[in-house]
Design a protein around this nucleic acid. Sequence first.
DNA 1: TCAGCTTGCTAACTCGATTTAGCAAGCGGC
DNA 2: GCCGCTTGCTAAATCGAGTTAGCAAGCTGA
Lengths: 352, 352
Amino acid sequence: MSPRRVTLAEVAEHAGVSRTTASLVLAGRARELRISQSVEQRVVEAARELAYRPNAMSVGLRTGMSRTLGFVSDTVATSRLAGDMIKGALEAAREQGLMLFIGETEGEADLERGLLQAMHDRQVDGIIFASMFTRAVKVPAALTAGPAVLLNAVPKRTSPLSSVVPDEVEAGRSAARVLLEAGHRDGIHLIGAGPRLRDVPPEALAGVQRLTGISEVLAGARVRIAGGHVCVDWQPEHGYEATRQLLEDTRPRALICLNDRLAVGAYQALDDVGLKVPSDVSVISFDDHPVASWIRPKLTTVALPHYDLGHKAVEVLLAEIDRNREGTPPRGETYRVSMPVRTRDSVAAPDA
Amino acid sequence: MSPRRVTLAEVAEHAGVSRTTASLVLAGRARELRISQSVEQRVVEAARELAYRPNAMSVGLRTGMSRTLGFVSDTVATSRLAGDMIKGALEAAREQGLMLFIGETEGEADLERGLLQAMHDRQVDGIIFASMFTRAVKVPAALTAGPAVLLNAVPKRTSPLSSVVPDEVEAGRSAARVLLEAGHRDGIHLIGAGPRLRDVPPEALAGVQRLTGISEVLAGARVRIAGGHVCVDWQPEHGYEATRQLLEDTRPRALICLNDRLAVGAYQALDDVGLKVPSDVSVISFDDHPVASWIRPKLTTVALPHYDLGHKAVEVLLAEIDRNREGTPPRGETYRVSMPVRTRDSVAAPDA
DNA sequence: TCAGCTTGCTAACTCGATTTAGCAAGCGGC
DNA sequence: GCCGCTTGCTAAATCGAGTTAGCAAGCTGA
């Protein structure tokens, strides 16, 4: 794009000094280089009058810092589910005067390689490697060439990269506590997976961790999980079918749906047989998808902290960039972001 | 980011030629500058062996083309509603070897100005200025300094910028046609706005245009719109209340909900009084939000072509960039992208 | 043999900013 | 007056790539 811009050379000429002097003044180094107040004033004034803004490409080429970050993910920006992750990252970046390049791989290795290359070609200061669903990832070699952070992902193998993930175990504990606090002691069923840990595919990290937390708290209260219904995928249809099957066998008092879309399906199945939420059956879930507040009654759910995840990832990445500049090795730490309970209308005391 | 990269100078040295020669060869200008086949071969081989990739910052500084585009919107990337717009844009850009900077303004003028500046500082080749909801926008002055395109927006005043928008009028026609084709001739009610055009706020562009198309086709078939229910916002709660009120007065045969979230609410209200979709009341709607295929029965809806909108915007922007490079004035055209009907299960012939 | 043309490359400059070494002028002390 | 130090700036080089003018060598025709 070629719209005319004011160059530093023009500012220098306007102020009647060399480009070097102008550069040093605007970089805040006037004192250090013993430039007089009057020259400094002239430069600052000229820059203001001419509305000078540095060309970021030029600065980047000279300094090796482009003031841009890369955000590479499978489908975060485009899946309609985790937009707040991007939002959090965008805001954290903006606060520091940085811009974000977005790239989506759809999980394809070739696309991923091309994107990482394109970002490195553009000299990004660092890269956030994000996953739509919490999972363990194979860290691409190209990613460790410079500062990078995993977002909503943990490395499959030992890696120098730090991770930022939701605290899913604690979320499971929270969900169980909500039911216990409402008075539920039996008839608690899982929709989506369980009741044993081995009923969850190990790659479904969120499921494993949610169930871990749920089991821990219920066991601690000597409450048994009455049953679990495995779903091959966590969409409304699967929640509907699982709940239909459950209702053929028994009358549940509470459902822990492993995500909100499963809960949508559970609501539909309960409605089909005339059971009311929450007077007949309480429902608690995870994610806080917008649909949670569209269904009636509104769903109590433990929220994925997308915004905070994205924001934290940028913070951690910036720390890694600083570390890299100082020649310090990467931190390789896992940061867990807590998941708040969104209390709505789907949980009540068990009926008699 | 400072990981070691191979420079053109290193390729030249490896091939035993000048940097100029190496540059000309890799730019495909060997023939034009009469460089021998053997020299050309040596350069190409050296570049391959050394895995040379040009530094995009350097190329950008020298050529004035950064091979990046800006995407500025209110809340498109982060609202969870229009992710496919970004996806379409990302894919169109990737096909051309370009990358996308994303920035969100939340409709704040200061943020908007800062973002446009940041993108210009980084020498973006052009900018897509997008809106989450179809609307008329005040085009920021900074935007017309170089190639730019409006996406899901039209300019409030005459502007040199082209627009890419969904064809909402034709979408309204499609929706009406679906009902006519199912046999509906009366008892057709609108949920969200209407029945007259003046019942829609003029700034709710999609509403005005959808209603225009609906009215046109129904009038052409001599079918009256039985009634319309204005909603201050188009969320499920509003659809629920409007439909509840409607059901207190009359028994509708078909509902045209002005978007899918209103339809969610309408479904809930119909369920409350034991009316079945579609046997008792057909429902058609707009947008094709994911929830359309979660509710039961699945909703027939006229889809917003987010992916195609985003893709088209990049295409149009690239044409504008070429035009700008040739010194040709911007096109200033409006491109309407058609909205396909997603036929599901919510429309049937009227009952007796 | 000489002049003009062709071939095949290179030196130098450019893009816009930053960085570093160093120079000139002035001052103070011996 | 001379030398060393301080002040206040600048020239030159750098970052990595692209662009343009031009030079040297060789060939051909008169």
